[in-house]
Design a protein around this nucleic acid. Structure first.
Length: 196
DNA sequence: CTTATGATCCACT
DNA sequence: GTGGATCATAAGT
C-alpha cells in the first residue's frame, strides 16, 4: 500500500496486439481515486482484432463516436457500457489498426476493503473475476474513457511474471461466426481469479 | 421517436 | 448449463 508505482512507458504498448495481450498478464492495473488507491494483477485478457474480427466493435472499420478511441494510438483506455456494467479495454494496433484488448479479470492486490465495499461482497475470489466486476471493484467508469495507461489516475505497471500462460477461444461472442473459435483469449494457468 | 442488439451478471435447475 | 434483467448505443422510421 505504500509502494510507489511507476507507470510503464508508451513503448510497452507498441507491439502486435496478440503479443501485447500476453505481455499484459501479470502486470498491475492501478486506479487512483481521491480517497483510495486500488490495484490488481491482470490475469485474463482477450484480443479484438479490428476490421477482420466479427466480434470486435470495430469490425469492418465501423467507426463511431464510441469506437473512435480504437483508431487512435495504442495504450489508451477504452471503456464501454454494457448491460449496466462498464468494461475496460487497452487500445492497440497503433493509429493504423482499430484493435483492442479486453481486460477480463484481475487478482486484487491493494485496496481490497474498498473493493468489497464497492461490490457489496466479501468473497475476494469473486470480487474481480469478470470484466464487469473488476471495473466496479476498482472504480473504473466512463470518466476514464480516452485516458492513457501511462499516467494517473489509471495506469499499468510491471507486476509479476506468470509461470505459465494458457490460450483458448473467447467468451460471450457466440453469434460472431467463425471468429468465435479464434484462440484470442489468454490467462494465467491455474490462477483462481480467472472468470469461468 | 422507436426498435434491435449485445465483449455481462446473477439466480436457479 | 440456461434464461431473464436491464440500459447505453446505433440505426431505422
Amino acid at each position: 500500500m505504500t509502494n510507489f508505482h511507476t507507470p510503464l512507458s508508451i513503448d510497452f504498448f507498441e507491439k502486435p496486439t496478440l503479443n501485447l495481450a500476453q505481455s499484459l498478464l501479470g502486470c498491475l492495473l492501478v486506479k487512483e481515486t481521491p480517497e483510495s488507491i486500488c490495484s490488481g494483477y491482470i490475469v485474463e485478457t482477450e484480443a479484438y482484432m479490428g476490421p477482420e474480427d466479427r466480434a470486435a466493435h470495430s469490425f469492418g472499420n465501423r467507426r463511431t463516436k464510441r469506437t473512435e478511441i480504437m483508431f487512435g494510438r495504442s495504450g489508451l483506455v477504452y471503456t464501454y457500457q454494457m448491460h449496466t456494467h462498464t468494461l475496460v479495454n487497452v487500445t492497440s494496433g497503433g493509429v493504423d489498426k482499430p484493435e483492442a484488448i479486453l481486460i477480463r479479470a484481475v487478482e486484487p492486490v491493494e485496496g481490497i476493503e474498498r473493493m468489497q465495499q464497492r461490490r457489496s461482497l466479501q468473497d475476494v475470489k469473486k470480487l474481480t473475476n469478470g470484466p464487469g466486476k473488476l471495473t466496479k471493484a476498482l472504480g473504473i467508469t466512463m470518466q476514464d474513457y480516452g485516458s492513457s495507461y501511462t499516467k494517473p489516475p489509471i495506469y499499468i505497471t510491471s507486476g509479476i511474471i506468470p509461470e505459465h500462460i494458457s490460450i483458448g477461444p473467447r467468451i460471450g461472442i457466440g453469434n460472431s461466426g467463425e471468429a468465435k473459435d479464434y484462440p484470442w483469449r489468454f490467462w494465467i494457468t491455474g490462477n483462481s481469479y480467472v472468470s469461468k
